[in-house]
C-alpha cells in the first residue's frame, strides 16, 4: 500500500498567488497514466479559522495529497469545498474532505448524480491505478450565488454556465483573486463535451467585468491580466464560426475534423485532439440547421 502511494505521487506543491491564496497547477496535457489525471488547477484560500478549497482534483489520492499539501502550509482546518463544475478532474478528490461542507451549483449536482459514475469509470480507463479507491460522490450542499463570509474571507460566488450547465466561479474580495473554473483556459485548447458556446461566450463577457487582480484558469498558468479570457474567447468564437461555415458549405464531419487550425491556435496544448473532440460534440447539432426538412 505504501509502495503504491509512493508510486502514485502527484508531487503537489502549493504556489502562493496572493495573500493567503494558493494554487496547485496541473499539466497542460490529456489524461494519461503518466500524469494520473493531474491536468487541472485547484486551489485554496486560507481564512482565520477555515480553509476554503476550490476543486479537489481527479482522484481520491489527489484529494488526500492536496489535503496534506494544504496542512503543510497552514494548521487552519478545511471547512468548505467548492466544486466549480461536473467534470471528473475537478471533483473526484471530494472523498478526502468527508468532514467538510462540499458545495456546487444545482446543475452540477444533478449532472454528477446522473453521469458521475460513468465519468469516473472513464477516468479509470484513462489513468489506471491512480484512481484506486476513487468513487464519484454527490456534493453535500447547494452553492447559492452571492457573497458569503467564511473564516473572515469575503467570497463572491458567481453562478454561470456555458462550459457546462453549471459553472461556479469563486472570487476572493480581499485579494481580488478569481477562480474561474473551466470557463477560462490558458494556452490549452478548451474542452466542450457539455458546452453551449453562446452561453460560454456570454459568461466570458461577464468575467471581463470582474475587477480581478489574479485569475486562476481551470487549465493553464495563472494570469494577472485578461489575456487568458481573450484567448479562450478567440478560440470559442473561431470554433463556432468555422463549424457553422463548414456546415453551410455542406462539409462532412470528418472533413471538418481535418481542417487545419489557424496558426495562432496551434500553440495551444492538445489543440489537435480537443478540436476533433469538439467537432464530435458540436457539429451534429450545427449541421442539422443546414439540412431543411423535405
Amino acid at each position: 500500500m505504501a509502495v503504491a502511494h509512493a508510486a502514485n505521487d502527484y508531487r503537489l506543491g502549493a504556489q502562493a498567488v496572493a495573500d493567503g491564496v494558493y494554487v496547485f497547477s496541473g499539466r497542460n496535457e490529456h489524461f494519461t497514466r503518466d500524469n494520473g489525471g493531474n491536468i487541472v488547477n485547484t486551489g485554496f484560500i486560507v481564512g482565520t479559522d477555515a480553509v476554503i478549497v476550490i476543486d479537489t482534483g481527479p482522484s481520491l489520492q489527489y484529494g488526500e495529497q492536496q489535503r496534506k499539501a494544504i496542512a503543510a502550509i497552514t494548521r487552519v482546518p478545511v471547512r468548505q469545498v467548492y466544486v466549480t463544475h461536473q467534470h471528473p478532474d475537478h471533483y473526484l478528490g471530494d472523498a478526502a474532505y468527508a468532514d467538510a461542507s462540499i458545495a456546487a451549483l444545482p446543475a452540477t449536482i444533478s449532472a454528477i448524480q446522473t453521469q458521475g459514475n460513468a465519468l469516473a469509470d472513464n477516468l479509470y480507463r484513462l489513468v489506471g491505478g491512480w484512481m484506486a479507491g476513487t468513487q464519484s460522490q454527490s456534493p453535500t450542499s447547494t452553492a447559492t450565488p452571492g457573497v458569503v463570509e467564511i473564516g473572515g474571507r469575503k467570497l463572491r460566488l458567481i453562478g454561470t454556465a456555458g462550459h457546462t450547465a453549471g459553472d461556479l466561479m469563486v472570487y476572493d474580495e480581499a485579494s481580488r483573486t478569481l477562480f474561474a473554473g473551466d470557463l477560462v483556459f490558458h494556452d490549452r485548447a478548451p474542452t466542450t463535451p457539455n458546452a453551449d458556446l453562446l452561453q460560454w461566450l456570454n459568461a466570458l463577457d461577464q468575467i471581463r467585468q470582474i475587477d480581478f487582480k489574479v485569475l486562476v484558469p481551470g487549465h493553464g498558468a495563472v494570469v494577472r491580466d485578461a489575456s487568458a479570457i481573450e484567448q479562450t474567447r478567440d478560440y470559442l468564437q473561431w470554433l463556432s464560426t468555422s463549424l457553422h461555415t463548414a456546415a453551410e458549405q455542406g462539409r462532412d464531419m470528418v472533413e471538418v475534423m481535418n481542417q487545419p487550425l489557424p496558426e495562432r491556435f496551434q500553440k495551444l496544448a492538445v489543440h489537435d485532439e480537443e478540436y476533433r473532440r469538439s467537432v464530435s460534440h458540436l457539429y451534429p447539432a450545427i449541421e442539422l440547421t443546414t439540412l431543411p426538412r423535405r
Binding site: 464531419m253 470528418v254 472533413e255 476533433r276 467537432v279 464530435s280 460534440h281
Partner: peptide, 9 residues
C-alpha cells in the same frame, strides 16, 4: 469520442 456516432469518410 462517442461510440454511438463515430464519423467516417
Amino acid at each position: 469520442e462517442d461510440q454511438m456516432q463515430v464519423p467516417v469518410h
